[in-house]
Amino acid sequence: MGRVQMKKKSTFIDMTAMSDVTVLLLTFFMLTSTFLAKEPTTVVTPPSVSEEKVQETNFVQVLVSPEGKIWLTMNNDTSAQWSNERMRMELLDKVAEIYNESHKNKISFSPEQKYAFSKLGAFGVPLANMGEFLDLAAMPEGTTKQDEWIQGKTEKVTGIPIQKEQDELHPTEFQMWMKAMRQTNNETLAQAIKDGTGVAIKADQNTSYEIVHMVMDNLQTIHMNKFTLLTALKTEGE
């Protein structure tokens, strides 16, 4: 009986080339990536044909949730003098100043609280609760608790208070923040706000016009008539 002699074959696959390719890809992604900022709510911006790109520095982003809650993000220069951390500390001082002008219950912040504020990305709690919110940072798992608060997972109020009825003498807290943004020492930001490139409204496409109108109206009252709306690139047709 003739036995077929099977040739022993090695199944070794050379992975070197594959490894080369993956390392190249990895390098590419590592160098080009900018990470998504953590945001309190996810919104889908409406599609538009506008091709103007969003600016990278010196702008304030107003995030509007479909329920009408508002959070702010302040993006400053990349230079050390106007770094985000420094400007946020200054911003907190300014907003406290503006708040105290019209409220009996004065607020003030300790250096630790200011430091905690400088580390925040998107922020938005009523100013009366801001101290309590910032104190969380020093506690164990403080940032997680802060995130939960700001995302509305606790019973505490999140979002910057805003209302329809307002005038220049009785500003809403949202208006106070925006005014404070304009008053910080970063002149490039103040100029950008004046030109209209410094304020970007990011809202979900299914948000009702009532809410967006309220935000725009609030801005209009404090003479921020020019601003931009964040949109996504339209995919189909024109």
């Binding site: 993956t22 992604f29 990536s33 538009s48 790109k53 990011k202 008539n225």
Partner: peptide
Amino acid sequence: NMLLITFFMLCTTMIKSQTLNIALP
């Protein structure tokens, strides 16, 4: 490497948002 690539691919925002300028009276 593949795992790392997957991570970076998912966490990256390649397309930047567009903006629409508005001037209210």
